[in-house]
Design a protein around this nucleic acid. Structure first.
Lengths: 251, 251
DNA sequence: CCGTTCTGAGAGCAATGCTCTCTTAGGAGA
DNA sequence: TCTCCTAAGAGAGCATTGCTCTCAGAACGG
């Protein structure tokens, strides 16, 4: 009932095993089903209570199960959180992807703006989940590598925009920055896997702009702007437009 | 034994009542003393375990008290956290202040760079505390207004630098940004209380730069830069130098 | 000196994460 | 179809947490 084709998906795939739906045995199917149900309930708890309010026992209760049964699916609370984080990264990543795809490929500035607003909109719609991804790491919890690779998905979109703009020759960054430090060359090379062909200087700017985007959203979402910004949407839009110019995108 | 004169203070003042030391009655003195001891222990717990690992009972245990006694000093765990947050803001604020004060007043760029490095250094030295301040708000916890006013302290330093630079005529922002939205005028006026005389356009840039600073530190501290930046200090320095140029500070 | 207030102790409640053991149901091979 | 083995849920239990009571003693102000 979850794999109806055109249906609205309230759940997000997190487990490897889930991706190959209608798997062999009935037991495996119901296991996948239950796993998904657990993450769904957990996600709704996360949305209402925040990461700290996520309780395995409450999830079990809501499922009509006994708490110990949950441990057949997630060996610990942290593993559940990890699954939610991976889901979250995929969700923002998807939001970024479709926002980007909705713009003509050569409208680099428009793609960047759409990307930014997609992130902010998603963050406002899922504040606790956003906090889980881009806020402080959850107490006593160390992000496993799974989450890191999931986190890259959104960054890929960004990288493509920058790379496309550079490739099209429409990237004319203002000449205001000092040269990047020598130690940055290697980093830039690594980042270039995500935004090919882009010179070091632009890579550096791209990082600044990218962190600036999330820095702004964090401030807005985590209350640092309280009593300061009256029209957050407009201010945000202006901010990312400026960032675009700093990066070298056309107005 | 705690108020030895020349002693090294590991504790930070949080309560109003603490500031006027050697208060009237002995009872009040010991109360202030114990309050401070509680926050000290709590802070060290925070430093090692993170916000989630902060336990009232553990604090009580370490003090040789029974847990319920703590509630005579802090009505709830959240209130303890609030005190720690206020302390934290004051600590970063102080770090910013002294970094700023160590530079000649007319070296605006140097003051900005010193400010940035002071924040980063403090963040690296107290990651959990920093996360409490600039990361996601703690689960189920809503920042009271006390913390907001405390948060301003560091921002004041920043405002003074921008304002000084502008007043000295050494602020020449590159003309790359679109005009700020109409709705921003009122916000700018409010921000101008912190950085007087500064025109709207510069206020907008100042906000972008400020959020960018914390955005970068967040990425670095919360692991978003994992496997990306090899020499974080150098990259950070370059980033804030670029930000300075974007703001209009001389190179 | 006496009554008020403040403070710590102690027990207790509800809730949490997690670990056991036990029983039952599902599935694979004969 | 029968037989085993494994997986899954139930249930009890442990240590821990935040927080609320009540109670006794100490400090304080008059």
């Amino acid at each position: 009932m979850f794999v109806k084709s055109g249906a609205l998906f309230s759940s997000r795939c997190s487990d490897m095993v889930l991706s190959m739906s209608s798997s062999r045995t009935a037991r495996e199917r119901v296991r996948a089903e239950l796993t998904r149900e657990i993450t769904d309930i957990a996600r709704s708890q996360l949305a209402t209570e925040g990461a700290g309010g996520l309780s395995l026992r409450a999830v079990a209760r809501e499922m009509g199960m006994v708490s110990s049964a949950i441990y057949r699916y997630f060996p610990s609370r942290d593993d559940l959180l990890t699954a939610l984080i991976v889901d979250g990264y995929n969700a923002v990543g998807e939001a970024m992807e479709s926002a980007d795809a909705a713009r003509p490929r050569e409208d680099h500035t428009g793609r960047w703006l759409a990307l930014c607003h997609a992130v902010r909109d998603w963050a406002l719609a899922h504040p606790h989940e956003y906090a889980l991804l881009y806020g402080s790491p959850v107490p006593g919890y160390q992000a496993p590598d799974d989450t890191i690779v999931a986190a890259v998905r959104g960054t890929l979109v960004y990288g493509r925009i920058v790379s496309d703009a550079h490739g099209a020759g429409s990237l004319t960054p203002p000449d205001i920055c000092p040269p990047s430090p020598a130690s940055f060359a290697e980093d830039a090379a690594r980042v270039r896997e995500i935004m090919p062909e882009v010179p070091d200087d632009v890579v550096a700017r791209a990082l600044i702009v990218w962190t600036g985007l999330f820095g702004w959203i964090n401030f807005e979402l985590f209350g640092q702007f309280k009593n300061t910004i009256l029209d957050p949407a407009a201010a945000f839009d202006h901010s990312v437009r400026c960032q675009a110019r700093f990066l070298g995108l056309p107005a």
